[in-house]
Design a protein around this nucleic acid. Sequence first.
DNA 1: CTATCATAATTTGTATGATAAATATACAAC
DNA 2: GTTGTATATTTATCATACAAATTATGATAG
Lengths: 236, 236
Amino acid sequence: MKIERRKVSMQVFDRIKEYIHKEKMQPGDRLPTEKQLSEMFGVSRTPVREALSVLEASGLTVSKQGGGSIVQAASLTNLIEEIQFEFVDTEEVLNLLETRIILETEAARLAAERGTADDKLIIKKKLEEIRSSQHDNRVGDKEDIAFHNAIAKASHNPILVHSVENLTTLYEKAIRFSLKKNMGISEKRAQVLSEHERIYTAIRLGNGEQAGEEMYQHLSNACKKFKHSFDQALNS
Amino acid sequence: MKIERRKVSMQVFDRIKEYIHKEKMQPGDRLPTEKQLSEMFGVSRTPVREALSVLEASGLTVSKQGGGSIVQAASLTNLIEEIQFEFVDTEEVLNLLETRIILETEAARLAAERGTADDKLIIKKKLEEIRSSQHDNRVGDKEDIAFHNAIAKASHNPILVHSVENLTTLYEKAIRFSLKKNMGISEKRAQVLSEHERIYTAIRLGNGEQAGEEMYQHLSNACKKFKHSFDQALNS
DNA sequence: CTATCATAATTTGTATGATAAATATACAAC
DNA sequence: GTTGTATATTTATCATACAAATTATGATAG
């Protein structure tokens, strides 16, 4: 039997989250001071500070020297189940997207030119799963990836499929650890959905050039959005 | 204008990530000790510990009491899975070539646009090795692959490089295990060399469009030749 | 020589106290 | 109402110390 020994700092991390939830704290509210928290939990300031570091890195709070720690998360109900940070290099994500653009632009074109009715039906299904995920207000990363993979499959080139799947999986991992706050911007979601629809339509009509162009635009926009959110994170 | 004021702990966080990346640390490798890190960056242990807390919470490292901090996740580039090679099928070789065309056309374009003088020198060297292999009447597969890989490297996109290398080595294996190797290639060697030279020239001049076009022609020709020799083998 | 085990050294985890720097607050001056 | 200033509060960092866990070392037995 293995006794679970969690670090005090991480226990404090949980307790503070719990506290925020319990007290129904709103964005802008001030947390108790580090001194108060350390007395509250019967520990020293050190683990409290480390817990607050993680909280801040996860975007839940902001600590300002002299000003205390302030709750930032907009809604505590869909509070972070999992901590998400950026530890992946921005440059690597951009390189990843660049490579995806190269491969998937052609994959979309080939899908339009070679895809069977069956292939296109599957793509359509994936598109609708994206729609319903959006309707449920979920993130929908998995559905997004599935849509792109389905298009690759319609190219009927297994090597290409494998390469695309490889990159999309990597991308999902990268995004999971790098995207922190810019999830749920509905207007952007609508735009993404519209882009997906345009890609699908072009494929359905068998218009390879158009499909490639739409895919290119779609991924280029993803690239722009990523850069933009990164710049924002830098200035905060 | 907003004066940039990043906390030391977060600067340390970035520096450690940078260090892991720079040193190409693999999962399982041990980071320097907290003491060493604090001396390295000229700060106390406190911010170093807070940075490590965030790193650990993000899943990049694990810190064990007494055991040091070890890297857990690697950079994206190292995560790319290789396509395992099963058996050589003509169709698969064509699929492989098709995917290579997609990737390497763009790789050549990027090489022309982003390649440094150094990069181009290396490409030139590889080209000359192809020439000398031809002079020695050797097959020169390795040299051919090295030439293509060097071009990919000049794109300065590690993900793209890895993807291209993956495919070129796969291609080399495929050709090697394919029974019909060296099928009537010798007379086309001069042509292949000329194609390589045209690619190099376009890259050297920084003409991206041209470089892409030449690469496209080159690999398309390889495709045609493969098809042709396969048909011949069928009819014999 | 090898393997095992006790011991020492190293390293992280936590505690404590002190100082610097930024912010918040209260209050006076205009 | 606004501005400025003094004071108190609070976070950010430093320095040191010790506990706890792991790793390295070396001795001993076979």
